[in-house]
Design a protein around this nucleic acid. Structure first.
Lengths: 340, 340
DNA sequence: GGCCAAATTGTTTGCGCAAACAATCCTGTT
DNA sequence: AACAGGATTGTTTGCGCAAACAATTTGGCC
């Protein structure tokens, strides 16, 4: 290692240039893969870079090019599996594209907090934003125009103004319910997600659709809030109505809560009661009994977000992607309806 | 809104200055809370800022001050609850300190990938780095000196070179085991974490410690890998030895897998067998039966990391924090040992 | 041998901001 | 009425880099 000329600060291109006996601009060219550099020169520069342990200063690069090579993520709830996986996918895909990821998390989601989060990211001059924040308000807040930073949201509302990436919740929900119908269940409860989430609505809708197609009656859904606790509480209500022999839950955690409520009530799953979840979180396969559920690949979802963002960033024409459909994973929490 | 002078680009301080009829420097002063600004001037500037919807350019600020107001996070596994919560805590605390958060995730952890991740963050001129990556190799790789960027790791090895923040796993483990001992269990299995994690070692150690103090024999731990699947598989092995009446698991997911194995074997928990987990993930309370476990507050852990980092960044003397102890949450997966 | 086009390198400039320094304007004093 | 010393604002400069433009060299060709 060669001692740096200035101490305390990292070496700059100028330092490299001096050592390699070229101009600063040539160093810049080597770093940016400019085509017309003599192999000999390039080598000298690279050696100087290595010897000084030079690392380019992103802030300066951003300032000079007005491209930050950074994308921002607004996440409201990456503590649960889905959003966390999506974040993972976003980071991976972004990093493969040579982008860094800045994250801002929301404690609560409303127009103000979202606007502030977006503003902070724009202030860091991110080139694009992914909103992993399934509340409806996120989608609407994304409309707030921020310079020309493209925004992609993870939600089922696709408004045209911004891109939205999501699994088809209506269809997934329909398929889940259909599975129970095919098993002979006539009264199928739905433990729904909370208000303010488009997916909640979509899942209710898909459930109703399947029920309607089979000429079965859809009771009011039991509104939960994605947590196991709410599923447990909702489960107690479901159990109060002896007609139900099955329930379709808006996610696996709700289903896990329901499973406990059933267990405590002495109802054996799936003999007495069938349960279907949604997401296929890692724990789903190890519930008692292992949970039948609709699998979604959230990591892929995150990658899709980056793809969509890159298209927008590079000004390419938007391309159609094949739709994302949850797939039924059949495990032991579902079986034929008990005889009346 | 006043029309910007230049189109396509965001307004700069110069634009604001022109509109407010002051110098660019005065705008800078207003933005940086310089004390001696005439209220009248300040107001004009603020009005101009609002009217232009001006937002400072972080890249320029970073370049001028060589402070990025950003901290980097290296995360290897934020898909599970603990690391995700820690990330959440880090982001919150950082944001309260006025810092942004850049994240780099690791697909696999070895010296090279970690070194590269650190290099990328340093390249973004982060002012500090938090490694949410509990593998031993992370701690060792953090030694790679990167300019003078302080690194804080989430792990139990505290080497002095860098700060390390973690709950006391040995003591937590001892307490968990002790709980089972007090319930009269004599043969207590341990479903351990995988090799390469200091916490795995610590938890084995704490378990042995409690057993030793009670003059009980510690069989070989059953090595798992933090997943429910491994707990399920490990559980089958535990069940092969009829002497065991209880098991202490290195985390809740392992415990959940064990619970399923017990259920399938017809062993009723806690009547026939007691189980203790670690972490108190949200699902723990809704396992069948609800899981006794050692609670850790990962969000707090994340906040601690930022505190430690701020101390280092601001060059303050390191201060002692009270130790973090997991607390026993007693639920229904533990009871007195069955009579022989 | 001279000429054109491509290859290769250098010089100047500005990105948007804050630090350093300089100038002016106050206020109450002696 | 002149002055010390703070209050308030302005001017110049440089952070590290890449874009734009300029200069020089090289190689091929008639």
């Amino acid at each position: 290692m060669v001692r740096q000329s200035r101490k305390g600060t990292s070496p700059t291109m100028a330092d490299v240039a001096r050592l390699a006996q070229v101009s600063q601009q040539t160093v810049s060219r080597v770093l940016n893969d400019y085509a017309f550099i003599k192999p000999d020169t390039r080598e000298r520069v690279l050696k100087a870079i290595a010897s000084l342990d030079y690392r380019p200063n992103m802030a300066a690069r951003t300032l000079a090019t007005s491209r930050s090579r950074t994308i921002g993520v607004v996440a409201s709830d990456y503590l649960s599996f889905g959003p966390a996986s999506a974040l993972f996918g976003v980071e991976q895909a972004a990093s493969e594209e040579g982008y860094g990821v800045s994250i801002v998390s929301l404690r609560e989601s409303n127009r103000e907090t979202i606007a502030e989060a977006l503003a902070r990211l724009v202030g860091q001059s991110v080139e694009g934003i992914v909103m992993i924040s399934p509340q409806d308000v996120s989608a609407s807040a994304a409309f707030l125009s921020f310079d020309n930073v493209p925004v992609v949201t993870l939600s089922s509302v696709d408004t045209g103004e911004h891109t939205s990436i999501m699994y088809d919740s209506v269809e997934g929900s329909r398929a889940a319910t259909q599975h129970l119908i095919e098993l002979g269940h006539k009264w199928i409860a739905h433990l729904a997600g909370p208000a303010g989430f488009t997916v909640s609505e979509s899942r209710i809708h898909g459930w109703r659709k399947a029920l309607g197609a089979a000429h079965l009656v859809a009771a009011d859904p039991f509104v939960c809030d994605w947590t196991a606790e709410s599923g447990y509480l909702g489960g107690k209500q479901v159990l109060a109505d002896p007609r139900f022999t099955a329930a379709y839950c808006a996610n696996d955690r709700i289903a896990q809560g329901l499973l406990l409520a059933l267990h405590e009530a002495g109802r054996v799953v799936p003999r007495d009661f069938s349960v279907v979840g949604f997401d296929d979180v890692p724990e789903a396969a190890y519930c008692i009994p292992p949970l039948t559920t609709m699998r979604q690949d959230f990591t892929k979802l995150g990658r899709r977000c980056i793809e969509a963002l890159m298209v927008r960033i590079n000004g390419e024409p938007p391309q159609e992607a094949d739709p994302l459909l949850p797939v039924l994973i059949e495990r032991s929490s579902t079986s034929r309806a008990p005889l009346p």
